[in-house]
């Protein structure tokens, strides 16, 4: 955040904060200090200096977001954490089913853990009258890598876009030049997560996916998005699988482990023995409810349940979620994944 502030002032996009306290509040604002969203000074500083009015809608939106954040974190992310830890412990050979289920559960865990955290942070800020940027926007409904990076950890991906990719030249110039820009940006994105080969390869893997996608797009005369729902579902599912392969690399302890994982999935088909510990029943129940809510709200332009359903129905769903949260409280609690980055 301090880098953003410094660069924006250097580039004359922002005037320096008038008071030290304003700058201090910007960098240390408690909801976002641990794991984002990585808020731009351009968006946040004016909110500090201007008179804030906390409206009823702010409180309502904030509370809804915090509530859904707890649901994602406590019921789903913590509920599947043990299964994921065992699957990626690397202490024994997984079966095909074990590897596939382990990968799927990690994809769910990292999304619910991080977007849950972001929801709690954004909701808490909203209760205080601050509007932080959206950090996740249905990333697993993406049809291609370009869409995915516009929806996953938006505050970070847009930061790399604006402060690394564009200064390198962005998507302009000769093909090789913009391909290089993409790969460098994703190399840095991987490195940002940790100084380990798995993160770097994960970054380069996504860089390659995006490069291939952009190349394909540049060869096409017209840009058409598939309108047929069946075709869209296939594209979405296909890209979800590619994302999951990335998550295997990201989550593995070593590159060898990720290769073994991928090899098991590709070559061990037919070994249906389930040799990972299944998630808690509450996590499975919560996951089913969560997926239903995601599908429903995604198809309704991301509106909240209370905006879409009569109060007699959404309050019943919320009461059910409270029960699920209570049922999940005895799960082994895990720290937020992104706090380690």
């Amino acid at each position: 955040m301090s880098m953003t502030y410094t660069i924006d002032i250097y580039k004359s996009r922002l005037s320096p904060a008038r008071k030290l306290s304003e700058y201090a509040l910007y960098v240390s604002f408690f909801p976002k200090i641990l794991a984002g969203p990585i808020e731009r000074a351009l968006n946040f500083l004016p909110q500090i200096t201007q008179q804030r009015e906390i409206k009823k809608e702010d409180i309502r939106t904030g509370l809804h977001q915090i509530f859904m954040g707890f649901f994602k974190k406590i019921v789903i992310a913590d509920g599947v954490a043990q299964s994921v830890n065992y699957a990626f412990a690397g202490s024994y050979r997984l079966s095909w089913t074990g590897a596939v289920v382990g990968t799927f559960l990690f994809a769910i865990q990292i999304y619910c853990d991080f977007s849950g955290y972001s929801d709690i942070a954004i909701g808490s800020a909203r209760l205080l009258g601050f509007k932080l940027m959206q950090n996740f926007n249905y990333p697993y409904f993406s049809l291609n890598p370009s869409q995915f990076w516009g929806r996953w950890h938006i505050s970070l991906s847009s930061w790399f876009r604006d402060y690394v990719f564009f200064p390198l030249g962005g998507p302009y110039g000769k093909t090789l030049r913009w391909l290089r820009n993409i790969m460098v940006t994703f190399f840095v994105t991987g490195l940002w997560h940790g100084a380990g080969w798995t993160y770097i390869i994960w970054g380069l893997y996504h860089g390659s996916l995006l490069s291939i996608h952009r190349l394909k797009e540049s060869l096409r005369k017209t840009r058409k998005k598939p309108k047929n729902p069946f075709k869209r579902a296939i594209f979405t599912f296909g890209f979800f699988i590619l994302t999951c392969i990335g998550w295997i690399i990201f989550r593995s302890n070593t590159l060898n482990q990720s290769l073994l994982f991928i090899k098991t999935i590709l070559t061990d088909f037919g070994n249906f023995k389930m040799n990972i510990i299944l998630p808690a029943e509450t996590a499975l129940l919560g996951l089913a409810l969560f997926l239903a809510i995601e599908f429903f709200t995604y198809n309704n332009r991301g509106q909240r349940l209370d905006q879409l359903l009569p109060s007699t129905i959404w309050t019943a769903i919320y009461a059910g979620i409270i029960f699920l949260i209570t049922m999940s409280l005895s799960n082994v609690p895990t720290g937020f994944i992104y706090l380690t980055f």
Binding site: D306, S311, T312, W314, T315, A316, Y318, A319, G320, I322, F323
Partner: peptide
């Protein structure tokens, strides 16, 4: 809504 949620929780 708060009352409704409590009502549903009692029902559950």
């Amino acid at each position: 809504p708060g009352i409704l949620i409590i009502f549903y929780m009692v029902i559950i």
